[in-house]
Design a binder for these strands. Structure first.
Lengths: 179, 179
DNA sequence: ATAGGCATGTAATCAGTTACATGATTTT
DNA sequence: AAAATCATGTAACTGATTACATGCCTAT
């Protein structure tokens, strides 16, 4: 269901788009919350059109189909957003990695955590750049909020990784009780 | 693959456990990074035993099987953690929701964001309580790092939701350029 | 002309959820 | 005796990834 919602959301915030456009947008704007490949997006858009959530308003050059959100689609997105029981499901490979890194030897864990921190620093730079070039959304002011969340979350993981690396090294070099 | 890794990780940090134990542990310790139901865990453990990553050391009362990580399992976990190309895949329904909330009318979005913030505040309290009662891990000091990350991430989303709600209300009440 | 990007699709496989199914042990 | 919890499993379905497949249009 979430893929449907994500697509409806993107069609709302970016206006009429092709499946190709939406696939790219999954990589840029919404990437820190959800991902989908074109092989999942195209069939889903067809189903959504069959269900009356979107319409194909025009067909362009290379068989390009431009999808527009329909009233029924707006209704469905709205209902999902207002619905009371939000499932808090989350699957983050990065967080899992972070969780398990301390099972390595202290010096290995610390080194790896610092490498992770670097990846997040790079990601952060990308996001900051995106923020600076914030001209790509139809509703002005919309993307900024989401981007801000992405930036803060990335920063928090980065900082955690650095601090944890330092603490692990400190604990290994200066064992308080033993082990 | 990640499920396998998560199970190997839990067997490392909590020692020999049954599938039932591991299912519960997915709900408590590792929940903010990954989830899995028993219907996925039991078959996976059987496959892992067939692949020599874990062994069944003892069988208890109600057909209970206690799995222990094998050398091959430790090797696989270690390799995964040290491997260079970490896929940054993440799927967070909460983040998706946060992303799309600003598509609602300002007052609706703000109200919903505040409701979200409350959920995160409650979750934060749970995690803080867990942190206080941190006596359940075999390797002392291990769980704390992961828990700390969970706490910080939850806090960041909570704060973002509150601030964004306030900003949306401000912008709606005091439109600078129009719309 | 050819390389790169645009654009859509399908098939096979793997991962994950929901629902069904069963039975033992412990607690009230 | 009944209810709660422990404990494992399977089947049907939905969601997601990887690989395959095709062809158009634009810039060099």
């Amino acid at each position: 269901m979430s893929l449907r919602i994500a697509l409806l959301g993107l069609l709302t915030t970016s206006g009429p788009s092709s499946g190709y456009d939406l696939a790219k947008r999954f990589e840029s704007s919404i990437n820190h919350a959800w991902q989908a490949r074109h092989s999942q997006i195209y069939p889903e858009l067809n189903k959504m059109a069959a269900d009356g959530l979107v319409t194909v308003e025009e067909e362009g050059p290379r068989g390009r189909k431009t999808y527009t959100i329909a009233a029924e689609g707006r209704r469905e997105l709205r209902e999902w957003l207002l619905e009371g029981t939000p499932s808090r499901s989350i699957r983050s490979e990065g967080a899992l990695r972070a969780f398990l890194l301390p099972t390595l030897e202290p010096h290995e864990a610390a080194a790896r955590l610092r490498a992770e921190a670097e990846v997040y620093t790079a990601r952060l730079a990308e996001l900051e750049a995106l923020k600076a070039a914030k001209a790509s959304w139809k509703r002005p002011g919309f993307g900024e909020h989401a981007l801000e969340l992405g930036i803060r979350q990335t920063r928090v993981v980065r900082d955690w990784a650095e601090e944890t690396a330092a603490e692990i090294e400190r604990a290994a070099g200066d064992p308080p009780g033993g082990e």
